[in-house]
Design a protein around this nucleic acid. Structure first.
Lengths: 220, 220
DNA sequence: TGCCGTCTCACCCCTCGGGGTGATGCCCGG
DNA sequence: CCGGGCATCACCCCGAGGGGTGAGACGGCA
């Protein structure tokens, strides 16, 4: 059997050399290429089957995020593992959105780096502890679906609030629920009073801020 | 110096014993308590200062998620590290939302476990490779902060759109920007036309659906 | 039985907001 | 120099929506 095929992408030649030494010491890993920038990396990916690309973020001639996006597009089976000096929130998220399978900082210990390469090669992911904290914060901000925020509303009002939050006009609501427009207005008024909202615009904001409607709950 | 004060929470006594052995082998760590369920864990947290709680998820008498939430509430300085058999998406997210600083599966190697305990004690986070993949998928689904959804708007219009999206009325906008209300209405009209939005309600929806405003970008 | 909450609807009032048109001054680029 | 985009403002129109009041029907509960 052959080892995990790895390419190194970093503009510092010295670092590439040391990475090659470190990784080659692990018998599961085989460093087959190393290049100095993103566009060269893409060329290699186009021509060879690789298991893992170890990628720096800051580089001349196409940065790591853009290169990552392109690599996962043309070779979805190839995993990209970011390896960078800084633990910058924006960059972490950008890299992950671009398709990176992991994000390590350069203070990682050699053994952990080799293990991370094996992890991502096997389809899982690798995050440096500091980066993990960043990501977890992000996750914590996200869903929290349902529950309160609709406290005190009658079932009918909750139903109408749902339509309100999706941008329906009173006339649309009365058509959808087969009601008089006066009735809809009564309900809407009760909703705004109970939730202490100024108008339907604030009702929409209330809905999104409390996760009562999610993204892609589109109006249509 | 004393080591990192750790409590083990797991209903399997055998596992607690082996964890105690494994962790005690690391000189940085000191296992000071072990209990069999969440409510006992909370009692301990109330009475003692702990650095890290190593918590199973599935337990009788208060599950790990609920216990975690309570622990971080009453002792914010204490870190909770989940340690469980399964890598279930729902549970991972629930645990993290509850305030867990990390999430490991029980196939973790002893040295990595000890390292993870030290990591969370120092304020960073620890994720098992498999769990990290789950989390990253989640992150990929989320924001996508881009500006394309404001294409064609002039700088002034973008500025006004920001206020529009936060629920400001025309009169509030004209006060904040020191403008005539007629001017504001002109801009708003241009915005709605360019983005093909029916009214300001749909403008708010557009903003949230495209991540142009995030949660906690509250109106106030 | 009578009370209360909910859902339904009606009528009035009047502001806010969307739409149209047009005008002024500015700066930039051809 | 002259157009065109941008920002600013004015005036008019009127429909949608928020606010107030009241009221009839139905069901549950004391």
């Amino acid at each position: 059997m052959t080892g995990i095929q790895v390419m190194l992408v970093d503009d510092q030649e010295l670092l590439r050399a040391s990475l090659r030494t470190v990784l080659s010491a692990d018998e599961r890993i085989e460093v087959t290429h190393d290049v100095a920038n993103g566009s060269d990396a893409i060329e290699v990916v186009r021509r060879h089957r690789l298991d893992v690309v170890l990628m720096d973020i800051r580089m001349p001639r196409m940065d790591g995020v853009a290169a990552t996006a392109e690599i996962v597009r043309i070779a979805p089976a190839t995993r990209v593992l970011m390896l960078t000096t800084f633990d910058d929130d924006e960059l972490v998220v950008a890299a992950i959105r671009a398709g990176a399978s992991g994000y390590l900082t350069k203070d990682v210990r050699p053994a952990a780096l080799a293990q991370a390469v094996c992890d991502v090669a096997s389809g899982t992911s690798a995050l440096a502890p500091g980066v993990a904290a960043t990501i977890l914060d992000l996750v914590r901000q996200v869903p929290m679906r349902r529950t309160a925020a609709l406290d005190g509303l009658t079932p009918r009002e909750v139903e109408i609030f749902g339509l309100l939050a999706r941008g329906r006009s009173n006339s649309e609501i009365c058509a959808e629920l087969v009601l008089s427009e006066n009735t809809v207005k009564s309900h809407v008024r009760a909703i705004l009073q109970k939730l202490d909202l100024r108008d339907r615009v604030h009702a929409v904001i209330h809905a999104y801020e409390n996760g009562l409607v999610g993204r892609n709950d589109l109006p249509g």
